[in-house]
Write a protein that binds this DNA or RNA. Sequence first.
DNA 1: TTCCGGTGAGACATCAACGTCTCAAGTGGG
DNA 2: CCCACTTGAGACGTTGATGTCTCACCGGAA
Lengths: 183, 183
Amino acid sequence: MTLDREQVLRSAAALLTRKSTATMDEVAKAAGIGRATLHRHFAGRDALVRALEELGIQEFEAALDTAVLDEGTSQEALRRFVAAIEPSAGLLSFLVTENQLFEGDGQNDGWDRLDARVAAFFRRGQERGEIRIDLTPAWLTEALYGLISSAAWAVQAGRVAGQDFAYMIVELLLGGARRSVEQ
Amino acid sequence: MTLDREQVLRSAAALLTRKSTATMDEVAKAAGIGRATLHRHFAGRDALVRALEELGIQEFEAALDTAVLDEGTSQEALRRFVAAIEPSAGLLSFLVTENQLFEGDGQNDGWDRLDARVAAFFRRGQERGEIRIDLTPAWLTEALYGLISSAAWAVQAGRVAGQDFAYMIVELLLGGARRSVEQ
DNA sequence: TTCCGGTGAGACATCAACGTCTCAAGTGGG
DNA sequence: CCCACTTGAGACGTTGATGTCTCACCGGAA
């Protein structure tokens, strides 16, 4: 029985999303495999996290590709992206906080590439006059990540409905909470 | 030389904000005291975190009191609150993620009280017609926390300017990133 | 059937952090 | 001045997670 590496990473992601301090033993049990087997495929906890990082980056990138941020209005593009990233929101949330722990040492540069793509999206929106120019692309990028994490957590905690995930994020990020005059 | 408990908690908060997995030894060193002394005043890591939780709740509550959310428009009130919470943003961010680890066991009910006050603020805004009603108070509350955390982190990482802290959060949360017609 | 590679279970040593304790030193109050 | 109290430093045992290893087992391929 050959190990399904993908499936192991999936269950590890699901577990670590809920409990970021989970033990290697817990991760193994969650994947339905032995701890020894887990070690055979991932040299250690660090290696596991790095593999999850690769997975997260890959899914993030796939979501960006799927969304085709260049097409249509900023709102339409962002809505497509958030909908595409939703299944990975928990993993992303875990990786973001995990990344904050790394104090500057070898940080996967994949994140920089993704940050750049998202920031570029907001910048294009500004150039087309669809996005405010008094909020920097860097801040909008960070805010998007924060809202995705918050929404993922709020949904999991049952404080908000899961079906509203994309709507909540996009409406708040683009439209804001203020009730405008025309609506 | 009597130990300054407040000062110890401050430096612990500052350290744990940056490195949430810091050791008791690191916390002690950061506070300029010995590990034994730290243990004399906080029975263990849990006790320390709980003390920080108390501090965070207290500062959060103080910020809510300072802001007087009932007065003026929602925007003015929110701006006052975010400005008041800014010094505690890092600590809050740490406590929020720390809280997510606690799987339902004894959770400080002070958070519920704070959540209720914030949610009530958004609900009042909705009733006065200042806040959209298609975004629930619960989501707006979570989103506010997420934006505060994101902003605190982004400022510390040097990705955004610290002086824009309150402006960025309030403008994005209330106004949204979309460029409106009249502005 | 017979191998062979991968697996699960468990034993084992290692290591880092924890919590406790002791003791010398220093401070402040009486 | 002296004493009570607190601190800092370090030693010590304990715990929990880690990483490695062995061995029996099983399923698929020859």
